[in-house]
């Protein structure tokens, strides 16, 4: 005897998502020359991975704690600034690879610690008070933006230098693509898989999946749920901060740099089905690919990237019309 029902629904969502990607590819092939198609697809993937790094923590935290952390974009920014600070703080002779690695790790650690502090100090008193949570997380976001503005100035910092091996470009089907963006895709994919394994294979993962449904019962089984909440929240902000630092070599760091990403992350989570991790992972890539395709069409025909943002809003509306609970959401 094997269970089938739930698995079928899941497989259906995956198939629909796959067909959507196929559709996008067909549109691409119809509209662009092959060299452009390759670049658009890679660009969609790398954008999708950045969206994923912000959205992953948000969606897991939303499932477990019923809190939509609107400060997640600020943690993305915090990661970029932490990266800069670590870059600058290391002694002059440090090889660039070491600097870069230290900045990545340091950004994640900074994001994690700041997230833990936020959960314990600011969020804990506000559980079960959703309106206060919105005000607090938005407020904290503003405060962090203003803080970096006060310390580093309003202009932002020039992009971090990446390791020479990643600072190259390569050619796919005649299209030029930056190696560093492939690095982002690899980092994102590794985290996507890593988080998935954490959720499916570890005790912490079992506790998180159970806590999403009934955290009181988890506690009655002898598990300190509060500590799990803090840990999960901190992991989410750590991943977002890591995302900010991986983006720093081409975005730089500036006040408010997380805001656009936050809005897209929210759209991703809604499309994926709010608290479904798999949904968030898949939706990140769909949104990235949709956005990249629309951006290229927009640039090619209208000479402006305006369609990029519009396209993902339309995509969200379309998904919600067909499935009000999102692609992988449960009724």
């Amino acid at each position: 005897m094997r269970p089938t029902l739930r698995v079928n629904v899941f497989r259906q969502s995956l198939i629909v998502s796959g067909l959507f990607v196929l559709g996008l590819l067909v549109v691409n092939l119809a509209v662009f020359k092959p060299s452009t198609v390759a670049v658009v697809m890679l660009s969609g993937l790398y954008q999708g991975m950045l969206f994923f790094l912000i959205a992953a923590g948000m969606s897991i935290v939303f499932g477990l704690l019923d809190v939509l952390n609107l400060a997640q974009g600020a943690f993305f920014m915090l990661g970029a600034y932490a990266g800069f600070a670590i870059y600058g703080a290391l002694p002059a002779g440090t090889p660039i690879e070491a600097r870069f690695l230290a900045a990545l790790l340091g950004a994640a650690v900074t994001g994690g610690l700041a997230g833990a502090l936020m959960e314990v100090g600011l969020l804990r008193p506000l559980y079960a008070r959703p309106v206060y949570q919105i005000v607090m997380t938005l407020g904290l976001s503003t405060a962090l933006n203003e803080m970096v503005r006060a310390i580093y100035g309003p202009a932002g910092l020039v992009p971090i230098e990446e390791p020479p091996a990643l600072a190259t470009t390569f050619t796919v089907l005649g299209g030029q693509f930056e190696t560093y963006r492939v690095f982002i895709i690899v980092v994102g994919a590794a985290l996507m898989l890593g988080i998935s394994l954490l959720l499916q294979r570890t005790r912490l993962g079992i506790i998180i999946r159970a806590g999403v449904q009934d955290s009181e019962m988890v506690q009655a089984l002898g598990i300190n749920v509060r500590r799990i909440f803090t840990l999960v929240f901190a992991l989410g902000t750590a991943v977002a901060a890591l995302g900010g630092m991986t983006a720093a070599p081409f975005l730089g760091a500036y006040p408010g740099m997380g805001t656009d990403f936050l809005l897209v992350a929210i759209i991703v989570i809604v499309i994926g089905g709010m608290s479904s991790y798999e949904g968030t992972a898949v939706a990140s890539l769909l949104v990235g690919l949709t956005r990249a395709t629309a951006e290229q069409i927009s640039l090619q025909y209208f000479n402006t990237p305006i369609l990029a943002s519009v396209s993902i809003l339309l995509f969200m509306v379309a998904v919600l019309l067909v499935r009000p609970t999102g692609l992988f959401g449960r009724e």
Binding site: R6, R203, I206, I207, R209, A210, V212, Q213, D214, M217, V218, L221, I223
Partner: peptide
């Protein structure tokens, strides 16, 4: 826990 297998429901 509906999303957890019987084994995971015990394991937790």
């Amino acid at each position: 826990f509906r999303q957890l297998t019987v084994e995971e429901n015990l394991k937790i």
